[in-house]
Design a protein around this nucleic acid. Structure first.
Ligand SMILES: [Zn+2]
Ligand SMILES: [Zn+2]
Ligand SMILES: [Zn+2]
Ligand SMILES: [Zn+2]
Lengths: 135, 135
DNA sequence: GGTTGACCCTGTAGGGACTACAGGGTCCAG
DNA sequence: CTGGACCCTGTAGTCCCTACAGGGTCAACC
């Protein structure tokens, strides 16, 4: 019942916001199924492919790894008992994001302090450099 | 006038908190100078090497790329008129960190909302999954 | 004096998630 | 019928390490 694919990889790229080379990479990695091919071997995509690819893009934008995206796609395909597992994957990613946020906040504070201490003039010794060198 | 190197790569690794393989990698990449060698070919490091390596580690912890670290090291070596350039490098990195912080905060909000919407039970359709799939 | 075992050496390959060719083939508009 | 935009496969590069593989060296212990 799926309509046969009717757009090329370049058009799909425009529609989904995912680069052409990246789409082919996702296919190699098993995130996107091998699409139908035209007589001359061109990949031909249908609406299902577009939905799936947008799903992947959104998940990547939220920082999920390709492995996590694969798992989420499996769960989305199954459509049964998926909720708890999906929540597990998302919660893990949320923890990871919060860890990175804490790291970046620390980095921001430290670097901001060092940049503020440096006047930007031609002083012989730069407090910015010294902040990195000193104990 | 530099004292001849007197510690091995493993000891330097312990002193600096940088892995042995990473130190050799930094040498290949030109961040660390080729050290003196013992009669049997072991790398022998002195206090200057240790300072330099700690500098690299600190800069990496603040998110500078190896290229940026190279530039900062050059400026630190020159010890003249470096301030403005060092501030430029650091300011660029600070902008980058703030960009990443904004990204992560957006991700955290979105993902937190999705996880909260998902009860974790065995409902037929998971709002978390749908948030990724829907427009 | 021999034998562990921890260390050191070089060189190469892997990882994650792309990205960029190189060297071709296809399609369509002018 | 020709130019240029698209598509194909396959391979190699990016960044920053990390992990071998296959050796050599050194100090301690029995
Ligand atoms: Zn300064
Ligand atoms: Zn759910
Ligand atoms: Zn070409
Ligand atoms: Zn070995």
């Amino acid at each position: 019942m799926r309509p046969v694919g009717h757009c090329t990889i370049g058009v799909l790229s425009g529609l989904s916001g995912v680069g052409v080379e990246t789409i082919r990479y996702y296919e190699r990695e098993g995130l996107m199924p091998p699409p139908a091919r035209s007589a001359s071997g061109y990949r031909m995509y249908g609406p299902d492919d577009r939905s799936r690819l947008v799903f992947v893009r959104r998940a990547r934008e939220l920082g999920f790894t390709l492995d996590q995206v694969r798992r989420l796609l499996d769960l989305a395909d199954e459509r049964a008992g998926s909720c708890q597992q999906a929540q597990g994957v998302a919660a893990a990613q949320l923890r990871e994001i919060r860890r990175k946020l804490a790291d970046l906040r620390r980095m921001e504070r430290a670097l901001n302090g060092a940049v503020a201490a440096c006047s930007g003039g031609t002083m012989p010794r730069c407090p910015l450099i010294e902040a990195l060198a000193a104990a």
